[in-house]
Design a protein around this nucleic acid. Structure first.
Length: 104
DNA sequence: AGAGTGACTCATA
DNA sequence: CTATGAGCCACTC
């Protein structure tokens, strides 16, 4: 039972896993890498994600803002994980993309 | 086939 | 900063 869903998830996970520590990527960036323009699907996929293998906390929106509905334990958990990797926040919800944006 | 939904992005005001 | 509308594409009903 192969669904496109699994195919997309696989690709997305593969890309996200490549994000090094201390760096973050945007949904749009990941979308381009998996061959789509729709950043929503990235969020959709990660929301359905239960894999702790995937560092979803390193994926943020284009402003560097974290997801309110973060799957693990809410945005506060995501922020904590990022700060644990030396990622700087400009406020409670935004990371410093100027310093930490992952450029493939 | 159509309508609703979504961890997004962009343009306008 | 907020709000609205459009674009986007796969999922679910």
């Amino acid at each position: 039972m192969e669904k496109r869903k699994d195919n997309f998830f696989n690709k997305i996970y593969d890309v996200v896993k490549q994000i090094p520590e201390g760096y973050v990527a945007t949904y749009g960036q990941v979308a381009q890498m998996v061959g789509t323009r729709d950043a929503r699907k990235i969020g959709w996929a990660l929301h359905g994600n239960k894999n702790l293998n995937v560092p979803c906390h390193r994926v943020v929106n284009k402003e560097g803002k974290v997801a309110l509905n973060f799957a693990f334990d809410g945005w506060e958990e995501q922020r904590k994980r990022l700060m644990d990797e030396r990622v700087h926040f400009i406020d409670e919800m935004h990371v410093n993309l100027e310093r930490h944006l992952w450029e493939r």
